[in-house]
Simulated scan of single mutants.
Amino acid sequence: MLPSALADLIGFHAPLSVVQRGQGGAVTLLTPGVNVLALNATFLPGDVGGVDLRDVQDWHEGQGLPPLVAWVGGEVPAGLKVQEVARVRVGDWAGEAGPPDDPVVVEQVGRLHLSAWAGALCAAHGTPGWAEGLARQLAGPLEAAAGAFALLMAYRDGQPVGALLWQARGAGGAAHLWGAADAGVGEALLNAAAALGADLAVTLPGDARWDGPSVRAVTEVRYGLLIPVPGEATRGG
């Protein structure tokens, strides 16, 4: 069984992905042409003994993508050999209203603004060249899931400085795909997303700058590239 934090990420990203695949308790999402980690990773259970890791590697590479995997916790699961590339934290965000003189304004925009939204998101992550591919990929899924997602954009002095994708979940929601020019913009985006529902599940950067009264129940998620080990058993390492 997958840890709840990984199941939460899959629930958010699966409707946006191109390919979904299950194998030995692991779940793979692949989306060529998009650089979002969670859209191009195999999510691993805590015990990888039932996962054929060589098959995972071969399958990723067969799609022309690196063998990226995600797992939960501070320790690498036994039998898993990886080169860590990123870590994030998944938890709950308790939103609060910003000050009335907040220079950051957050607005909900329609799908006609998807290109500008993707541009703001990718610029916030320092990867503006991926904006066109991201907008192209998300256009179909967002249209098919009309009403299930909302696009938020943040502006400062009239200029876009961040973007967030919110997913409706019962009385609450989730925001696992977002980017902001700085922490102030990020907090404004997350607070606006939290106002759309009763609860907000969110992915936060890996550092501790975000610790505070707004953050609860945080679980660390790590991403890494599988390291092939010739001669060893492929199942569980």
Rank of each mutant, 00 (worst) to 15 (best):
R89Y: 07
R235E: 11
L190V: 02
P205T: 14
R216V: 14
V185H: 11
Q57C: 10
A194C: 07
L134Y: 05
T234C: 08
G22C: 00
G184A: 08
W59I: 15
D47F: 08
A150L: 05
A183Q: 04
G231D: 12
A194R: 05
R169V: 14
W178F: 09
A175G: 09
L16F: 01
P45M: 00
A148M: 08
I227P: 00
N191P: 05
V85E: 13
W93T: 11
R87L: 14
A171E: 15
L200V: 02
A163C: 12
G129V: 01
Q23F: 01
E75P: 02
Y223M: 11
L189S: 07
T42F: 05
P67N: 09
G46Y: 01
L164H: 11
Q108I: 03
P32R: 00
R87K: 14
V90G: 13
G172Y: 10
I10V: 13
I10A: 07
A192I: 10
E75K: 04
Y155D: 08
A135S: 15
V27I: 05
A150M: 01
H13A: 15
V82Y: 12
E132S: 05
A145Y: 12
A41K: 04
G25K: 02
V106H: 06
A94H: 13
D211W: 06
L138K: 11
G170Q: 09
A148F: 11
A41Y: 10
L114D: 06
G91Q: 09
G237R: 15
L164S: 12
L114N: 03
A201F: 07
T234I: 08
G95D: 09
A208Y: 10
T203K: 07
R169N: 14
A163D: 13
L165E: 12
L200E: 04
G236Q: 07
L151V: 06
I10W: 04
G126R: 06
L65R: 01
A195E: 14
G179Q: 02
Q20C: 03
Q57G: 14
W59N: 11
V105M: 04
A124H: 00
L65G: 02
A116Q: 01
A150G: 12
A120T: 04
G231S: 08
T31D: 12
H13P: 10
V229F: 05
A14T: 04
M1A: 14
P66V: 05
A131Y: 13
L121W: 02
Q83P: 06
Q23A: 02
L177N: 13
G197V: 11
A233W: 04
G98R: 00
Q57P: 06
